[in-house]
């Protein structure tokens, strides 16, 4: 399992003690659910274009 506290420290993120558990719980949820979802993707599926998530229509 990812050591989120260590990553936070390495990146200079210092959490208040009262927030730390909640922050880490959120990150664990995001990571674990995403990893399950990714397994369902077709191997060749490309990401949505970062700056135009929709296929923009041709210029008139």
């Amino acid at each position: 399992m990812t050591d989120w506290k260590a990553i936070a420290q390495a990146r200079g993120v210092v959490w208040e003690e009262s927030l730390e558990a909640r922050q880490i719980a959120t990150l664990i949820t995001l990571e674990s659910t995403l990893s399950v979802l990714v397994q369902t993707l077709p191997f060749e599926l490309e990401p949505a274009p970062v700056f135009s998530p929709l296929v923009l229509p041709e210029e008139p």
Binding site: L19, L30, L34, A48, V50
Partner: peptide, 29 residues
């Protein structure tokens, strides 16, 4: 504090996870 907490979370997610999220986005589109 609430906004800072969200920014901190975003700093810790990896490039791989971001790209995978964009791939999932494509699937849902």
């Amino acid at each position: 504090s609430d906004v800072l907490a969200l920014i901190d979370q975003g700093r810790l997610l990896s490039g791989t996870q971001y790209v995978q999220a964009q791939r999932c986005r494509r699937m849902f589109q």
